[in-house]
Computed example of a mutant assay.
Amino acid sequence: RVGEGMGLAIKVQDGAARAKYALALHLLQRMGWIQPAAAEMLGERFLAVGPYTRLEVEGELRMP
């Protein structure tokens, strides 16, 4: 958050942008840093799943 000394870092093991965008939007909304309307608009732009995309979940989420 600009001027508040807070930020957010996301690392995706395979570097896939699709995972980073989805997680970033989810976290920003959950933290109250963006409004639901903004999240929806950004989701329409960055979370579109292509017809040849496989959605498989692997890995874990760790929060220190």
Results as ranks from 00 to 15, higher is better:
E40K: 07
L42C: 13
L28H: 03
K20D: 03
G50N: 01
A38R: 05
Y21M: 04
R30D: 14
G5P: 01
L8Q: 13
F46Q: 01
K11R: 13
A22I: 01
V12W: 07
M31Q: 12
G7C: 05
A38E: 03
R54M: 05
L42W: 10
K11T: 11
G5K: 03
R54N: 08
A48E: 08
W33H: 05
P36W: 00
E44A: 15
I34A: 08
L42Q: 05
A17D: 13
G50D: 07
Y21W: 11
G50Q: 03
G5R: 13
L55A: 12
E40R: 11
A37V: 10
P51R: 13
H26M: 08
G15I: 10
Q35F: 06
V12Q: 05
P51N: 03
P51Q: 03
A9N: 11
E44P: 05
M6F: 11
A38M: 06
G3L: 10
Q13G: 10
L42H: 12
E56T: 03
L28I: 02
T53N: 04
L23D: 09
I10P: 04
D14K: 11
R45L: 04
A9D: 06
A37C: 11
M6N: 15
W33E: 07
G5Y: 05
L25A: 00
A19M: 13
P51V: 09
Q29N: 02
Q29G: 02
I10F: 13
G50A: 08
G32T: 07
A17N: 14
P36L: 00
T53V: 15
A38G: 00
R18F: 08
H26Y: 13
A38T: 04
I34W: 15
Q35C: 03
G7K: 14
Y52L: 06
H26W: 15
H26G: 08
L23P: 05
P36R: 00
Q29P: 00
R18W: 15
K20A: 14
H26A: 15
F46R: 04
L42S: 10
M41F: 15
G15H: 08
L42V: 10
K11P: 04
A22M: 04
M41G: 05
L27N: 09
A48Q: 11
W33A: 12
Q29W: 01
Y21L: 01
L25G: 00
W33T: 01
L23Q: 07
A16I: 06
G43T: 02
M31I: 13
G15M: 09
L23R: 13
Y52W: 08
G32M: 08
Y52M: 07
L23G: 02
K20R: 14
A17H: 06
L28C: 08
A17L: 15
P51W: 06
G7L: 12
L8G: 06
A38S: 00
L27C: 10
Y52V: 01
R45A: 03
H26Q: 04
G15N: 10
